[in-house]
Design a binder for these strands. Structure first.
Length: 295
RNA sequence: AUGUUAGUUUUUCGCG
């Protein structure tokens, strides 16, 4: 905002992209009034909002589940002669999926296809995730096949969602097969892929396999992050292997990682459950000590 | 010419 004002002060006139950037910023931090203020200001200034402007506002509404408002805005944009694009529809579909209004999501999907707008990998991935989040594996795989049939290549995000869903259902072996499919297709799994799969093995108590995933990611040159460690620490704690959890915790600083609130929370819970209150107390005072140093 | 928009992972506790 300050930069914006400075820019106006210097006599540089904002254009549609300037406004879009501001509006997007406010929308993604759910500062709705501010976003609308700039929207009005641009219209008053004679700058026509374009599809990006509307998409930013729309995705802001969709993210917080204000789907009635999103629909109203969608109609308004069409009314203003701005043609919705694949981003517009995908945002709406995402919003409806998140509020578990599957019928509406599919209605917009059809409308989009009928209107000659081609769904892309993000559209399909959004739909797949919508079905995965309500544990409708059949429909998820149907969509997965459909997208492949339409020559739309699933990407690593698509695979991560499928892997995460299988893991949550305890089907880690199947999840592992998807990881292999990514590699077979010549694509790169990312840190999300590995962390998700690791958590899958942790959830079924196969800590040896979880550890193998960590090792294979290191072997491929990926740096485990704080989430990787938290996942394994939590896994060891739940498998009552608190010594292993502690070992990992101690290795974090050496690997350039700072334990965060999640690390401490998992470890403290694990140690307390195991009745190791002395150890828990030590960890806690370490944490509080570090906290004081920073303040 | 260039810049702006949509999808994915980990912990505890509480509430619904």
């Amino acid at each position: 905002q300050t930069l914006f004002l400075a820019m106006v002060d210097q006599g540089v006139s904002p254009d549609v992209v300037t406004y879009n950037s501001l509006i997007h910023g406010f929308c993604s931090s759910t500062q709705w009034e501010e976003a609308m203020k700039y929207f009005k200001e641009m219209v008053d200034g004679g700058i026509l909002p374009n599809v990006v402007t509307y998409n930013s506002l729309l995705s802001g509404l969709c993210k917080v589940g204000r789907m009635e408002d999103a629909q109203t805005l969608f109609l308004a944009m069409v009314h203003q002669g701005v043609t919705p694009d694949v981003v517009t529809y995908t945002s709406l579909i995402h919003g409806f999926c998140n509020s578990t209004q599957w019928e509406e999501a599919m209605r917009y999907f059809k409308e989009m296809v009928d209107g000659g707008i081609l769904p892309n990998v993000i559209t399909y991935t959004t739909l797949i995730q919508g079905q995965c989040s309500v544990a409708n594996w059949r429909e998820a795989t149907r969509l997965f096949t459909e997208m492949m049939d339409r020559q739309i290549s699933p990407d690593v995000v698509t695979f991560n969602i499928l892997i995460g869903t299988l893991c949550r259902e305890g089907r880690v072996e199947d999840a592992q097969r998807f990881l292999e499919m990514i590699i077979q297709r010549g694509e790169e799994p990312d840190i999300f892929t590995y962390n998700t799969l690791m958590d899958g093995y942790c959830m079924v108590g196969q800590m040896d396999e979880a550890k193998k995933v960590l090792e294979s990611m290191v072997g491929k040159g990926y740096k485990p992050d704080v989430v990787s460690y938290n996942t394994l620490i939590n896994g060891y704690c739940r498998s009552k292997m608190t010594n292993e959890a502690m070992r990992l915790f101690e290795k974090m600083p050496g690997n350039g990682l700072t334990p965060d609130i999640v690390t401490y929370s998992a470890l403290l819970t694990g140690l307390c459950r195991a009745g190791r209150f002395m150890a828990a107390q030590e960890i806690l005072s370490d944490m509080l000590g570090l906290c004081k140093n920073k303040c």
